[in-house]
Amino acid sequence: MKFFRYIKNIFLGIWHLLQGMYITMLNFVRPKLTEQYPENRGKHVYFERFRALLTMPHDENNHHKCTACGICMNGCPNGTITVISKMENDPVTGKPKRVLDKYLYDLGGCTFCELCVRNCPFNAIVFTNQFEHSVFTKERLVKQLNRPGSSLAPKPVQKPEVKVSNGNVEGPALHKGQPVPPEKTQTI
């Protein structure tokens, strides 16, 4: 009996080894996952939420949406963002008003946590997929996001949906991407 078990175990072992070889052969003939980077430049599609570079979108009239409120600067955990503002007279009302002078972004210190984009009440900054960052000196990693000569986009006719309640700024941007709090369920 023991002898038959010995023989049976040998054949069972061989069968299991062959099963393993079948699986590796499937791997061998499968299309390869390797992305060949410099060749697939411009062809490869990155996923939507890929965060690579902070940018400030400008429209065709060289307008951006940044009001220089500084929420992003204060919210940044690494001090990556520096918002430099200046006072200017509003051409409509004639009153002095704070406008953006320079929006400096230090790529070298950024951890791509996206707190700045989520906290921006005006959707003035976004992350893009452009990931080719390498430069030769550390100083060149500091980028100015607003274009020269750009200005704040004029207010639309309707007032923007910014309400002030209990001292908190509540805008549409604030809740973007945040999970809806679950409803209370009764537990027995």
Partner: peptide, 9 residues
């Protein structure tokens, strides 16, 4: 061949 077995090039 090793690369192909590991699904790389």
């Amino acid at each position: 061949v090793c690369g192909f077995f590991q699904c790389r090039l």
